[in-house]
Amino acid sequence: MKFWPLIPRLILLSLLIAFLVSPESFEFLFKPLVQANAPAIYNQGSLASLTLLHVRMVFFATCAATIVAVALAILVTRPFGAEFLPLARTVVNIGQTFPPVAVLALAVPAMGFGNGPTLVALFLYALLPVFENTMTALTTVPRAISDAAKGNGMTALQTFWQVELPLSLPMIVGGIKISTVIGFGTATIGSTVAAKTLGEVIIAGLNSNNLAFILQGALLVAALAILVFDLLSMLERSLMKWKAA
């Protein structure tokens, strides 16, 4: 019944996989974009392995950030952490005004080149949306509901695990979704500080004026971001089944 919306995604996914497995078979598409003697398919490394490295980096950074951010958000929304709630809100508000590139650039002096600063920038930048969403979700559980939980004899811990956390999950996943999308973009820029990601392909294209490279890198990152965004949106919706029709 809900099969039709899946089709464009499946097509996108299979195209992505096909391109990664055998980029040469797509050469005819990119040939018109380059001068006669320039390579039409990225030739300075394996596109598939760069894609995997890209995804892996975003995945690890987002996972770590999610654990830390959710834990922090839980902490400041408990009675004993309430002292830090206003500060946490302000820091989050201000943190969001820091552009990802600036975070990346500022991490380099501290960490040098390579994957390190990119991971740190990804991690730091992924913290904010997850933290903000978790905090918002936990502080906006309707009063009648938390009251009912307590009134029915749940301990504070039970209220948290059985009511507050499940009700907040969709919004937490929403935060992870935002983090991941930003992460894909930031990881791409990470190549400017020598991180091994798909950004290398784009930058190689920019440096050698090779449109085909730029297009390949851009399309790969865009396809990945859209697919992951979509996957997490589906997860978000399935967690909200109690809300939808």
Binding site: P142, A144, I145, D147, A148, A149, K150, G151, N152, G153, M154, T155, Q158, V163, P166, L167, W242, K243
Partner: peptide
């Protein structure tokens, strides 16, 4: 408190049902 409340029924305005259950 929580043991006491398990022995006493509690119903409130707007019912306070858990929307995810």
């Amino acid at each position: 408190g929580h043991e006491l409340r398990r022995r006493i029924g509690y119903a409130i305005q707007g019912h306070g049902l858990f929307p995810h259950r």
